[in-house]
């Protein structure tokens, strides 16, 4: 029996739309981007700037279409940026300015 609703979009156990998808079993190498996002998340955790739970909450807030379009670590950097903004660790104006010059 399908149990697709209600549920949050990241809550993927048994979701029918993926049941016929093949699993890509071969190894994929991580990119430098992936490694750095992972490292920054760990550092922010150790320094108690943001927790892994806050990271997950931020990932879960990504709209469903985007969630499945973005790669794993693309979701992470988006959640990290949103969480830092929400907590006032960084401000929207300075993030926009930094995006201009990066």
């Amino acid at each position: 029996m399908d149990k697709d609703t209600p549920r949050a979009m990241h809550d993927l156990g048994g979701v029918s739309q993926f049941m016929c998808d093949a699993v890509e079993t071969e190894a994929h190498a991580l990119t430098d981007f992936d490694r750095e996002v992972d490292a920054i998340r760990q550092i922010l955790g150790v320094k108690q700037v943001m927790s892994v739970d806050e990271l997950r909450r931020g990932i879960e807030a990504i709209p469903e279409g985007e969630y499945h379009r973005l790669s794993y670590y693309q979701r992470w950097i988006r959640s990290i940026a949103s969480t830092l903004l929400r907590k006032g660790v960084i401000e929207e104006g300075e993030l926009l300015a930094a995006l201009e010059c990066c």
Binding site: R7, A8, D11, G13, D53
Partner: peptide, 9 residues
């Protein structure tokens, strides 16, 4: 808004 670790199924 919430964050739940009990899976739906």
């Amino acid at each position: 808004p919430c964050h739940i670790r009990t899976p739906h199924y």
